[in-house]
Design a binder for these strands. Structure first.
Lengths: 349, 349
DNA sequence: CTGAAAGCGCTTACAG
DNA sequence: CTGAAAGCGCTTACAG
């Protein structure tokens, strides 16, 4: 079924069919109804490629997910398990706004070239990037951006500095430093002063900010940041395990540990427990994300709640707004986080 | 940049550019290289819409995810948390096969119409459905299928019976009955004979087969299936909670409980524990899925491992094969599962 | 081996 | 308010 047949059956021209389909105003109700009747009866839907080629937008948004392969557990590609709900929320909001979403997974820097490629091929009108790791390809993308971009978890200043003059970009972050500050405040309030930290993937803006926030906050409270309690977790279970074991072997332990995500916190708890230590009696542990498992594990995990849905919403709405307007614009939004106190922390013994 | 410019710069016709781009054989190396040089220098990529309109495939696969809204926790749309890794695997495999993927989330029966709509609009060449719930719209889709379909978790017989003669469909399932049989065998081996069961969403083929498998297996062992131990969980945390509490109030408890997914098992454990019971000492619990949380909770969850990656792989490879061939075909694949014994079961006290 | 031409199914000035 | 015509950027017989 094509518009020509609809036109014939309705006794009008293809132009008119097009006007009705696109809901243009200069069509009398009678004509419109005549056409719609045929459309409904035959379930006509316009060929997307033809529309796009004729000048319409693709009405599709590209979603690019940076994924971390856990070398030790190749099956477990959702290294960033928080992507699940996030992806879902993005798809949902896009669909509600009338956009389809083309989803891609990226594993290495070279994969980033698929973003400009998808624009070149005219497969999408704009793109959302999540879990972005800083690298050359992304810098180039931002520097040459000629299509709207929503970048989740990225340094807004880096964008402002390097974006092309006609760029339309929105960065979406959450209050990573405030979240970590809440953790430190809470632990300090409990009486802890020997606080360790497990870092995330530092190429990631959130991981970097959590680390920086930790150092700044500790400094603000004149608390010593002991190098032997700074563990390199890299958002990886395996790396966290190794770092934890090394610390346990060394024998000098903090009384509390803040992990840059839930997954690493869970591994930390596990390792501690296997070493015969009790959580939270012997050592307190805080996570970050408030993922699906956090309320279910025992002790239930005290953690910082990431506003995934709100971030997804901001990214989509922001992108849709950029799509609707030709004006260059660089926006940034930072959403608040909240410490969710459960059972994994206690005063130092 | 369009093919005409490439042609001009390379000193050939657009036809030749097209032949090179599409890697046709009847082009001498010299001509090919001349064209490719220009293509590389200008980073030319053909406009997808134009290619499709001119008769090429869209090279995109639609991924439709049936999602269950947890009414009680609207934020938590990934009711089926196992979709995370699954989606990732599907996207990965599609990309490796040269396909883009258009992802959609479905929440209610009416949403199913988006599948034929996406075909009508010529947005995709084939579709993968996951978490499909049986309903009228899906029946229609299968009955009229004129494009390749891969349906994960669906009754293969229902497909054979109602599919149109020219249908190209593959159904992908795992051994749900065998998985449940393993659970019952294991529990019986431990000495249990008072075994309860928490059902999933019964509109789902896997949930139905798990239930049927449970009844059959219990019968095979001459074990009584007590109605008061058959809980209606519906893959929902909230419903599971309610059902568990009702059972606890009634007071007549089984010595072991098999849940149709991990999430419900975790809620069951939680509820039991809140009622002062110990798991596994007082009551054993088995899950299904072996999701991210299973090995991390305490007691670590004994559960049936779903072969997510393999299922995603089979769905994609199966669909790609159907896409490559015009022949009608109805295939079905069933992948084996495995009981992962951890800490949540013990002999009855 | 290669090019000129037709055609894919729409949209959009343009003219009336 | 409506239609005829041009055009979007490719691919593909067809002819040579």
């Amino acid at each position: 079924m094509k518009s020509e047949e609809v036109a014939r059956l309705a006794g009008v021209s293809r132009s008119t069919v097009s006007r009705v389909i696109n809901n243009y105003s200069n069509v009398p109700d009678e004509t419109r109804e005549k056409v719609m009747k045929v459309v409904r009866e035959h379930n006509y839907m316009p060929n997307t490629s033809a529309r796009v080629l004729a000048g319409k937008g693709t009405d599709t948004i590209g979603l690019f997910i940076f994924n971390v392969h856990d070398e030790n557990n190749p099956g477990h590609i959702y290294g960033n398990s928080y992507f699940g709900p996030f992806v879902n929320a993005v798809v949902d909001r896009c669909n509600h706004n009338g956009y389809s979403v083309l989803i891609h997974t990226l594993y290495k820097e070279a994969d980033c070239l698929r973003i400009p490629a998808a624009f070149s091929e005219k497969r999408m009108d704009g793109a959302i990037l999540i879990g972005t790791e800083k690298n050359e390809a992304i810098d180039q993308l931002i520097a040459r951006a000629d299509h709207p971009l929503a970048i989740v978890d990225y340094n807004p200043r880096a964008v402002s500095l390097s974006a092309s003059p006609q760029a339309r970009i929105i960065t979406v972050n959450s209050g990573d430093d405030a979240g970590i500050a809440d953790c430190v405040d809470y632990l300090a309030g409990l009486g802890h002063c020997r606080i360790g930290f497990i870092t995330g993937r530092l190429l990631t803006w959130s991981a970097e900010r959590r680390l920086r926030g930790f150092k700044a906050c500790m400094k603000g409270r004149s608390l010593h940041v002991a190098p032997q309690w700074m563990l390199s977790g890299d958002f990886s279970r395996q790396k966290t395990l190794v770092a934890m074991q090394a610390m346990l072997v060394a024998g000098d332990l903090p009384t509390a540990l803040i992990a840059s995500n839930d997954d690493m916190a869970l591994v930390a708890i596990d390792t501690l427990r296997n070493a015969g230590l009790r959580v939270p009696e012997d050592i307190s542990v805080i996570g970050y994300d408030d993922g699906l498992a956090a309320p279910l594990v025992r002790p239930a995990l005290t953690t910082v709640r990431m506003p995934f849905l709100e971030m997804a919403g901001s990214a989509v709405e922001g992108l849709v707004a950029l799509l609707a307007d030709e004006e260059p614009a660089i926006h940034t939004v930072t959403l608040p986080v909240r410490l969710i106190v459960r059972e994994s922390c206690a005063p130092p013994s």
